Amino acid sequence: MTSRPFQQIDVFTATPYLGNPLAVVLDGRGLNTEAMQAFTDWTNLSECTFLLPPTQAGADYKVRIFCPGRELPFAGHPTLGSCHAWLAAGGVPQGELIVQECGVGLVKIRRDGARLAFAAPPLRQVGPLPEADVTLIARGLGVARDDILAHAWCDNGPQWRGVMLRSAQQVLALRPDSSVLAGLEVGVVGAQAAGQDTDFEVRAFFPGHNGLAEDPVTGSLNAALAQWLMGAGLAPARYTAAQGTVLGRAGRVYLERDADGAIWVGGDSVSCIQGQVTL
């Protein structure tokens, strides 16, 4: 075993302990998949990442992303948190943008002041969900089928199924049935009332160790939701999403479509723990 630099980052918040935590092992060289998975499971966090030297031209670093029980080709809060940790540890990008290598390929990250934002990767599956899925999701969420105003595949690595409800308040009131939604990754969005400091409320449900789990703040889902909602005219080209409210968090995700059509997913990050881990 080797002592390796380690950071724990809180992502999508500027205030520690109100976002989504991420464990980052800044030197994953020599660790096999089993060791990475075992450490991830031990952290009891939604995700853990391991930084490695890049293998693709143009990349500044490579990251492997794990959640309990499996490796992910891409995830949003691990992307921003890993980049934050890499920069804090002295990483210097080759160009104006930071380029991360991961399972879906190269992901561009830009600095907006102290805030980082990643370019949403292409969706792997698009279009409306099968009606059988929509009916099942409505039952699992405990809402009427007519309360789902719109729905779409939001698959960008994680196979999110996105549904839009009538309001943010309806999203916040959800008490999903884990037995009905077992095995599904479901993202739920609802518009906020006028005058709020955010535009949408988002919740993310996914399979966990003990049934259905809820993610505090989810970059991959918000990226895919923005691609769907903006493309369908259901959201403006720039908006802010709140997530984690029901869990006592105050996550904020900043979505923007630029002049070239790329969608950027931004958020603040803050280092909470720094030290060494023996792996």
Rank of each mutant, 00 (worst) to 15 (best):
Leu279Ser: 10
Val163His: 13
Ile98Gly: 04
Trp160Asp: 08
Gly95Pro: 01
Ala168Thr: 06
Leu149Ser: 12
His77Pro: 07
Ile65Arg: 00
Gly76Glu: 04
Gly266Asn: 01
Gly127Tyr: 12
Ala57Glu: 10
Leu174Phe: 05
Phe200Gly: 04
Gln243Glu: 14
Gln192Phe: 12
Leu116Thr: 07
Glu71Phe: 00
Pro21Lys: 00
Ala88Met: 11
Val270Gly: 07
Arg115Tyr: 05
Val24Tyr: 03
Thr15Tyr: 01
Glu47His: 02
Ala117Pro: 11
Leu165Lys: 10
Thr13Cys: 02
Trp160Asn: 09
Val99Phe: 00
Ala152His: 09
Leu51Val: 11
Leu80Gln: 12
Arg252Lys: 15
Gly95Asn: 10
Asp155Asn: 14
Arg252His: 12
Phe206Ala: 14
Pro158Val: 15
Pro78Trp: 03
Gly69His: 03
Val217Thr: 13
Ser82Asp: 10
Ala152Asn: 11
Thr198Cys: 14
Ser82Ala: 15
Glu47Arg: 02
Gly183Gln: 08
Glu131Gly: 12
Ser179Ile: 05
Ala259Glu: 11
Gln7Asp: 06
Pro236Arg: 11
Val143Lys: 06
Pro16Phe: 05
Val253Asn: 08
Ile98Tyr: 03
Ala57Gln: 07
Val163Ile: 10
Gly113Gln: 05
Val104Gly: 01
Cys48Tyr: 01
Val180Ser: 05
Asn32Phe: 09
Leu18Ser: 11
Ala235Asp: 05
Ala232Val: 11
Val217Glu: 08
Ala259Gln: 09
Ile137Pro: 11
Leu45Gln: 10
Asn20Phe: 00
Val163Leu: 09
Ala262Asp: 09
Cys67Ala: 08
Pro16Cys: 04
Leu97Asn: 12
Thr240Gly: 08
Pro73Asn: 07
Ile65Val: 09
Gln274His: 14
Ala114Met: 03
Gln100Tyr: 00
Gln276Asp: 14
